[in-house]
Simulated scan of single mutants.
Amino acid sequence: MPQIDFYILHTKARQERDRLACQLVDKAWHQGYRTYIHTHSLIQAKQLDDLLWTFKDTSFLPHDIYPEVLSSTAPIRIGYTDQLCEKMEVLINLTATVPPFFALVKRIAEIVDDTPTAREAGRDRYRCYQQTADNVLKVHEIYR
């Protein structure tokens, strides 16, 4: 079962959540992991796609949107469906629910915004993961 890290953001700025997702995917890519960023819609996937091109002046993160590009070999995929691309090792979940394919990856990053609705959805995801055997859960507090 995967290791699951919860990142609790202490800011209400939505762009901070997306910037943290970019930082996490950058770190995973530099460590050699194939990463899937799970979003709730094609619109959110495209916004994140744009941010991955610009969030860092000094580097490029090879990525694309799944399933728009099915035969891609990009190590970073952004998706919005209930299916996971093949051979993904890290999942960055930007949705309010636990993806049905969560057990297929080695690591999961859950980013929780500092709003009552997001915190409650984060607690629900934490409880869901906790009920699944052998998960390693960690919580990180991030102040911005």
Rank of each mutant, 00 (worst) to 15 (best):
C128G: 01
Y126N: 03
D124C: 12
E16A: 14
D18Q: 12
Q44M: 12
S59G: 05
V69T: 11
R119I: 15
D26S: 13
R14G: 04
A45D: 01
H38T: 00
K12L: 07
H38F: 06
Y126H: 13
P62V: 13
E86K: 11
D82C: 01
G122L: 06
D57E: 11
Y66K: 07
Q15V: 09
F102E: 08
E120H: 13
K46H: 15
T115N: 07
R19S: 02
Q47P: 01
D18C: 01
E110Q: 12
R119S: 02
K87I: 00
R34W: 09
Q23S: 11
K87G: 03
L48T: 04
Q47M: 07
K46L: 13
T132P: 00
A74N: 13
V98Q: 11
S72A: 06
Q83L: 10
I111R: 09
A21Q: 13
R77A: 14
T81N: 07
T95E: 12
P116H: 06
K27W: 02
R125M: 05
A45H: 05
D134R: 03
G122P: 08
I37A: 03
Q83P: 00
A96K: 15
D82L: 09
D134S: 02
R17E: 15
T117F: 10
G122I: 05
K27I: 09
I78G: 01
A74C: 11
R34A: 14
I78F: 00
L94W: 07
I111K: 10
L61C: 08
D124G: 03
G32P: 04
D114P: 04
V139W: 03
I43C: 00
G32V: 06
K46W: 12
